[in-house]
């Protein structure tokens, strides 16, 4: 089998599906922000500094609703707690001796989708490399920030005349997650996936969407420990 490239450029290339998914969602975020009364600069700052999609949408609702700043911060931080697991899980998949000297730079880009894509690449035989991770992250980050700016400039109601386009864009992220899941699917992972799915539904119905996400991830990972 020929070795697949692990350069910065190959990382950027691998980020294309993520960028294609991110740009329209970030566009929708920019539109939603201006619709909610935020300035273009504020929408840009939220994407540049927070860089976590779902919690950015929630930040709009919390700030518009006049929720106290510490409460809003705590809610958003709790929502992103799942990211704690991604770094160690990725480094475990990368194997012993995998470089991490420049992780201070590429780890910032370790979102749900970048983590999923990196894992998929490793599962398909690509060797771990920091330049690749940096390229993967920068492509996704660039699409997120630029999509936000374009959405904020287009302004609230930009997609009102195109409901089918808006609907299709709304399905982009679920489609990306499903494709990523298919890309890492193995027979051994099936029980873990089943447990995670059931726990997510149960947690969401019983408590909230955020609780469902945490329940799914933890229950699925625990299922991996129990199942030898």
């Amino acid at each position: 089998m020929s070795e697949r490239p692990t350069t910065f450029a190959s990382g950027v290339l691998a980020s294309v599906p993520i960028a294609l998914g991110y740009f329209p969602i970030a566009f929708a975020f920019g539109v939603a922000a201006t619709k909610a009364g935020f300035s273009g600069a504020e929408a840009f700052a939220l994407s540049l500094v927070i860089y976590a999609g779902a919690s950015q949408f929630l930040a709009l609702a919390l700030l518009s609703g006049g929720v106290a700043l510490p409460v809003a911060a705590f809610t958003l931080i709790a929502m992103n707690l799942r990211h704690v697991l991604y770094g160690p899980s990725l480094m475990k998949a990368a194997g012993e001796g995998a470089g991490r000297r420049h992780a201070w730079a590429w780890a910032w880009g370790l979102t749900d989708e970048v983590f999923g894509a990196a894992l998929g690449e490793l599962a398909r035989g690509r060797r771990f490399s920091e330049p690749f991770m940096f390229g993967l992250g920068i492509g996704a980050y660039g699409a997120w920030v630029s999509g936000t700016v374009v959405g904020a400039v287009a302004g609230g109601g930009a997609l009102a005349a195109w409901p089918a386009v808006e609907a299709g864009l709304g399905f982009m992220l679920p489609a990306l997650f499903l494709a990523l899941l298919l890309s890492i699917l193995t027979r051994a992972a099936v029980p873990v996936i089943g447990v995670a799915a059931v726990a997510t539904v149960a947690g969401t119905l019983a408590v909230s969407g955020t609780a469902g996400i945490l329940a799914g991830m933890v229950a699925g990972a625990v299922a991996g420990v129990v199942r030898k």
Partner: peptide
Amino acid sequence: MARFLAATGPAAIATLVVASVLPM
């Protein structure tokens, strides 16, 4: 811990599939 971390990836992605489809 190694098994927990190895299972985290599939668990996280499966969770995100379900969490993003449920509201639809």
